[in-house]
Design a protein around this nucleic acid. Structure first.
Length: 113
DNA sequence: AAGTTGACGAACG
DNA sequence: GCGTTCGCCAACT
């Protein structure tokens, strides 16, 4: 089946596809998502993509946090983002998550797998 | 086509 | 360690 990323679609669409690979109880940084797409410097573009938030319920956008551990922002409010992560088992303190513990390392797209 | 914006990141002071 | 500045990329106007 190859990866469908060959399809034109916007950069944002690829972002949503990557977020769906994030398991419950784990989080990733904007940079990790950008790297997974092959653009390690597109962290801002990733954030911009999530800003549109067209699949708020299907894509776990709340599992994306900043490299500093700060939960960053959320279309529904950072409070909601923190609440969702906490309910999934992610430990958040003062709006900051320990990415050293919860950061997901298998974010690669892997054409086959 | 060109300029502005933004849920970021790293470097500088 | 904290606050500010520059730099990157894609989408929107």
């Amino acid at each position: 089946m190859r990866s469908q990323k060959s399809t034109k679609r916007t950069f944002a669409e690829h972002v949503y596809d990557v977020l769906r690979r994030i398991p419950k109880g784990s989080v990733v940084t904007y940079q990790d998502v950008a790297v997974a797409l092959g653009k390690p410097y597109a962290a801002r573009a990733v954030g911009n993509a999530l800003n549109a938030n067209p699949h708020l319920v299907e894509v776990p956008c709340h599992r994306v946090v900043r490299s500093t551990g700060d939960v960053g922002g959320y279309a529904r409010g950072s409070e909601q983002k923190i609440a969702l992560l906490t309910k999934e088992g992610v430990r958040i303190v003062d709006g900051v998550v320990n990415i050293a513990e919860f950061r997901w390392a298998n974010l690669s797209i892997s054409s086959r797998g």
